[in-house]
């Protein structure tokens, strides 16, 4: 690629997009100022699952949770609830003591 050249200003994107190789598009993306009005340039700069429409179209599915993992998650949940009650007691004492 010629340094400083802007391949995106050329008309060949419009004339024969199919002929453009991926390398050309990526090289164009590295040119002085990319023409972001051209969707192919935008897409060449982003990974497939980085595009908002693709992210909305697809979701990572649920992962199966083993018994041990579920037990751990429940254990931690119970831990948080008990500790929050303890915090409430502690703060109640502190506020009452201070007041």
């Amino acid at each position: 690629m010629k340094k400083g050249s802007n391949l995106l200003n050329r008309d060949h994107f419009k004339k024969d997009r199919a002929r453009d190789s991926q390398q050309e598009i990526e090289a164009a993306a590295l040119s002085a100022r990319p023409d972001l009005k051209h969707p192919q340039v935008v897409l060449s700069l982003l990974e497939a699952d980085q595009v908002v429409a693709e992210k909305q179209r697809t979701r990572f599915g649920r992962r199966p949770l083993s018994f041990r993992v579920r037990l751990m998650l429940w254990g931690l949940r119970v831990y948080v609830i008990i500790m929050l009650v303890i915090v409430a007691i502690s703060v109640f004492r502190a506020v009452r003591g201070g007041g």
Binding site: Q22, Q40, L43, L45, A48, V51, V52
Partner: peptide, 18 residues
């Protein structure tokens, strides 16, 4: 995926949804 969106199978379709 680390594949460029332009090269992905859905590339053409995504082009209209940017």
């Amino acid at each position: 995926t680390t594949e460029s969106a332009a090269a992905s199978p859905a590339g053409q379709q995504l082009a209209g949804l940017l």
